[in-house]
Design a protein around this nucleic acid. Structure first.
Length: 426
RNA sequence: GGAGAGUUGGCAGAGUGGUAAUGCAGCGGAUUGCUAAUCCGUCAUCGUGAAUAGCGAUGCACAGGUUCGAGUCCUGUACUCUCCGCCA
């Protein structure tokens, strides 16, 4: 959500900024006129309320003879007021709906463009490996090592699900443990959170009102399945006024994640790349309302996830996401993509975003600034720590040997009982 | 699932029909000056203002209702705690 007063005082700047994300300028004009209309009505109904309050309060000290006429007059005003307030609440609902649909301002530094073809590669780290044998894709590797039950689980749980077993199942958990340890060493609070969410957090995160199709909903309990721990962590402190001394708050959230993948028909239908349910360790930061401060944390989060891919010894590239490809909540977004040999390209493993105060305005999460005692909205940021099973795809493909075994990078070995290699022939 | 108790500001905590006490913390100011104390103000949201000035509206979990007037009375919902039941 954005600040309406800023929009009114800087209409042209706002229009230009949001146009970079494809948001129509006319919508800003109608937003402002709705706001002005709403305030006009608000002013008149408040004046009415003032008169009525004064009248009501005078009853206590009025004489018995005076009372009936005052009560009658007050009752009359009450009905008039009620009518105005009903009109007002219709306008308020309209205004709030419009506010909820405004995307965040994009950073002046991020690239412009309508879609992902305009994302900019900032750097590539590591070199894609040249194999002296024909590398297998991750599905073949799973089959030959007895690491999965892909066909059988589809019968039980439907398409885009997975069941992995033996060394691969333990590898999945080991990677999360490694990342959680790393985050803890960087000062993060490790926290496991539910996959269940009420509706309000979805508005708080900015998933709603934009993409309801992507979310599992359970009408019997009026609950949603969370697509990421970010959803939960972003609302964990909702409506609080924090002390500045509590900031920054760093969470390393671990949770199952659910996505309907409604818009991904036909994409990545086989294997572990795109599934309805997966496990994610998430980095989430709540910091002061200061762009230099949140940009510092944005770089820090990016550095941590790069470190994760380096520890996993995977070649990757860093993308600066363009205005048209980043979601509505984002001020700036970097994606990390790891090299997938079987697809001969880089595939997304991490998405690192600075949301500035856009989510905090929705969750009403604020803090009291030490310098001036003022209450301000916090900035929030999020980044993947690691998401599995997707990350297992580049992992087992990059580290495979000709005999189907998979090498374990040094940093991960302590989490797998010191194993250097996994697989049937290991 | 059953029974009971509860939900008031950043925190603590009064208030059972007539304008939300008080304390602590934070912020601003004054004063005194031995690392601090004291006093005053402020302390959430919104409207109207150039205004961080005044004035006003709103705010006691949420949504309704009764009333001239609701933190207070009534109904519903959510959540928390205690006990019972069930259970990974």
């Amino acid at each position: 959500m954005l600040d309406i007063k800023y929009i009114i005082d800087n209409t042209d700047t706002v229009k230009k900024s949001l146009a970079r994300k494809g948001f129509p300028s006319e919508n800003i004009d109608s937003l402002i006129s709705t706001y002005l209309e709403m305030n006009k009505l608000k002013t008149s109904s408040q004046a009415l309320a003032e008169t009525k309050n004064k009248l009501s309060n005078s009853i206590k000290s009025a004489t018995a003879e005076e009372r009936p006429s005052i009560i009658a007059k007050s009752k009359e005003l009450g009905e008039e007021l009620k009518k105005e307030q009903e009109e007002l609440s219709i306008l308020e609902t309209k205004f709030n709906d419009m506010m909820l649909r405004l995307p965040n301002y994009p950073s002046p530094d991020c690239p412009d463009g309508p879609d992902d073809t305009h994302n900019v590669v900032i750097r590539k780290v590591g070199t894609p490996r040249t194999f002296d044998f024909t590398p297998k894709d991750h599905i073949e590797l799973m089959e030959m090592n007895d690491w999965s039950e892909m066909e059988r689980i589809a019968k039980v749980s439907g398409s885009r699900t997975y069941a992995i077993k033996n060394d691969l199942a333990q590898l999945e958990l080991a990677i999360h443990m490694m990342v959680l340890d790393k985050l803890r060493s960087h000062g993060f609070t490790v926290i496991t959170v539910p996959a269940l969410s009420k509706e309000r957090p979805l508005y708080g995160q900015g998933y709603l009102p934009f993409s309801r199709d992507e979310i599992y909903y359970m009408p019997a309990d009026d609950l949603y399945l969370s697509g990421t721990a970010e959803l939960i962590l972003n609302s964990l402190r909702a409506d609080e006024i924090l002390s500045e001394n509590e900031l920054p708050i760093l969470y390393a959230g671990f949770s199952p994640c659910f996505r309907r993948e409604a818009g991904a028909a036909g994409k990545d239908t086989r294997g572990l790349v795109r599934v309805h349910q997966f496990m994610k360790t998430e980095q989430f930061v709540i910091c002061k309302n200061d762009i230099a401060e949140s940009e510092k944390w944005h770089q820090k989060l990016l550095a941590i996830s790069e470190e994760v891919l380096q520890d996993l010894e995977l070649p990757y590239q860093v993308l600066d996401i363009c205005t048209g490809d980043m979601g509505a909540p984002k001020y700036r977004q970097y994606d990390l993509e790891a090299w997938v040999p079987s697809q001969n390209c880089y595939r997304e493993t991490h998405s690192c975003s600075n949301i500035t105060d856009w989510q905090a305005r929705r969750t009403n999460l604020r803090y009291r600034d030490n310098a001036d005692g003022k209450v301000k909205y916090v900035h929030t940021l999020n980044n993947t720590g690691i998401a599995t099973p997707r990350a297992l795809v580049p992992f087992i493909e990059n580290h495979q040997n000709a005999d189907g075994t998979v090498n374990i990078p040094v940093k991960l070995r302590p989490y797998l009982g010191g194993k250097t290699k996994i697989g049937k022939n290991a």
